[in-house]
Amino acid sequence: MNSSAPTTATDLAVEARGLVKSFGAKGSNAVRAVDGIDLEIRRGEVYGVLGPNGAGKTTTLKMLATLLPIDAGSATIFGVDVATEPHQIRQMVGVTGQYASVDENLTATENLYLFGRLLGLSGSAAKRTAADLLERFGLEEAASRQIKNFSGGMRRRLDLAASLIARPPLIFLDEPTTGLDPRTRGQMWDTIRELVAQGATILLTTQYLDEADQLADRIAVIDRGAKVAEGTSGELKASVGSSTLQIRLTDKSHTAMAAQLVTNVLGEEPVLTPEAGGLNVPLPDANRAADVLIALRQASLGISTANVAQPTLDEVFLAITGRHTEETDQTETEEVAV
């Protein structure tokens, strides 16, 4: 699904057409980590890329950031070709990966100073920038502490600070809150919102559905290297029904029987969570929930809980891909190849 708002080339921070990346032996044995993905990311928005481990999220980001060559297709960033002008692209983007890129044996100040000098800042400008970023990310009290003594959340904030030294207009955040506690995740979300308010464009990859829901203006769902859906959070939720009937059975062994009954009543299949004896039933009309419940009762299928709610992104992802975001397809994981 695509957002209907028209865009022009000057509106776009990122435009990609038919991106392909393969790993492994050539020919039929090659694994396509990215298989013909198109992207249009508007200036000043947060664009979320949602998918399970191994879906192709990180590989797509690495191609756009010039960290991996593009096998097929094309991409531009602010109108500049990624394949032919990699040096210019690197001057326009900041990248924060899944794992902190800082030196554990240096202090926070030393890390940021080093990155500043590597990016061409004078000694005084690098010191000033390091101090400003440490204050901005709430790390000034830890400025002289070695990174190996930092918590995971502090490392992630410092890594994000390092990617902002050159004040890039486009920031790639690859699963920036992986492994963080809820409080630190919230702090990172606030920082991301501040960056957008200051004019940045952000490409955010994540497997956390609530993160995409909270931050992204638009979301692309990627599965097995292909983009399978796109839209705002509301549009994606509406694609699986205006309401969802969430049912838990008293006997989970009856899940398949209940699913068939629901399909007979409504004409479409529910999303199953068999391990919990659950069914999430998309409803074109919330009043149809009564039809389902009556049919289950007549079939003597006991219900422990039932409620009607707006669909969640988790239900959207299950409906589109048939699996949860945390599930990994071992035959197509980009971790093997990158």
Rank of each mutant, 00 (worst) to 15 (best):
R185E: 01
G120L: 09
K26L: 08
D210A: 08
H87P: 00
G267D: 01
G278E: 15
T273V: 08
T255P: 03
P270F: 10
T191S: 11
A65Q: 06
T244M: 14
A9V: 02
T10E: 15
D181F: 08
D81K: 14
N105R: 12
A143T: 12
L12Q: 07
P182G: 14
G277E: 13
Q187F: 07
N111Y: 10
P284F: 00
T206L: 02
R155Y: 04
S243A: 09
P6R: 10
G24F: 13
A9C: 04
E326S: 15
T321H: 04
G97L: 15
L160A: 06
V95Y: 15
L279H: 09
V292G: 03
A83W: 00
R183G: 00
D11Y: 09
E104G: 11
A309W: 00
A256Q: 09
L160V: 15
T255A: 10
G199V: 08
N105L: 11
I147S: 12
T333W: 05
T328Q: 11
S304T: 15
E15G: 01
Y99E: 09
T328A: 12
L39T: 14
I171G: 02
V49E: 03
A229Y: 09
L313P: 02
E315W: 02
A295Q: 04
A216Q: 10
A258F: 04
L64R: 10
G94N: 05
T76V: 12
D210I: 04
N280K: 06
T255K: 05
D314E: 15
T305R: 15
P52Q: 00
E334S: 14
L301K: 12
D314M: 08
P86M: 06
A306G: 02
W189P: 07
K21H: 11
V34M: 08
T96A: 15
N307D: 08
R323C: 07
Q207N: 11
E135V: 15
E140S: 13
V292T: 04
Q146L: 06
E326Y: 13
P284K: 00
Q198M: 14
N29G: 07
A276M: 13
G234Q: 12
R183F: 10
L313S: 02
G44R: 13
K227I: 01
V336P: 03
V34I: 10
L114G: 06
A299V: 05
Q146Y: 05
I320V: 13
R156L: 11
E104S: 09
A5W: 00
G302F: 12
R157Q: 01
N307P: 00
R193C: 11
L133D: 03
T206E: 05
F317Q: 03
L313C: 03
T263H: 05
T206F: 02
A259K: 05
S233C: 14
L272N: 07
S233P: 06
Q207R: 03
R218I: 06
R218C: 04
V316M: 12
T76I: 02
L283M: 03
I147T: 14
V102R: 09
G116S: 12
D314H: 06
T191Q: 13
R157V: 03
L50V: 04
G277D: 12
A125E: 14
T59V: 10
E40D: 15
V281A: 00
I70G: 05
S144I: 04
M1W: 07
G116R: 09
R136G: 05
R136D: 12
Y99K: 14
N149V: 00
L121C: 03
P270W: 08
